[in-house]
């Protein structure tokens, strides 16, 4: 049997992280969460995620730096950035920085689920 797609969720807000993890688990993904960039890198080395959902403003290293480091390890990893900041500049920077998509918080969970489905089949 094929292995379940693995998703890493990085957000320092504990209940936001937990909520995203539960919602994605409910969709049948294998999920794990981290609250900082360093924790995320450590976990990623072990778990080899296919996709990461990363908050732009996480402690230690910013979300985009984390994404580029994750992609150094696995070039095929897809990154979906999430942020409370919907400024065009930030969106542009994220997409240019290799993100698959950018979602402005608060968003509808089903939009995230749709995006993930698209990211994993593309």
């Amino acid at each position: 049997m094929e292995r379940k797609n693995r998703i890493l969720v990085v957000d320092d807000q504990i209940w936001v992280r937990r909520m995203l993890l539960e919602a994605l688990q409910f969709q049948g993904y294998e999920v794990f969460g981290a609250s900082s960039g360093f924790e995320a890198l450590r976990l990623a080395a072990e778990m080899k995620p296919d996709l990461a959902v990363i908050d732009m403003a996480i402690p230690g290293m910013d979300g985009l730096t984390l994404l580029s480091k994750l992609r150094e390890i696995n070039l095929n990893l897809r990154g979906i950035m999430i942020s409370g900041d919907g400024e065009k500049k930030s969106v542009k920077k994220a997409l240019e920085g290799g993100a698959f998509a950018y979602l402005v918080k608060p968003f509808d969970i089903s939009s995230l689920e749709n995006l993930i489905r698209r990211a994993l089949t593309s």
Binding site: V16, R18, M19, E22, A23, F26, G84, K105, P106, I109
Partner: peptide
């Protein structure tokens, strides 16, 4: 406002999970 957004977001998300179940 940013601080308010995060809790609202998690509340909404959990409610959606409930809704789905």
């Amino acid at each position: 406002v940013h601080e308010i957004k995060n809790p609202l977001f998690s509340i909404r998300g959990f409610l959606q999970i409930l809704d789905n179940t």
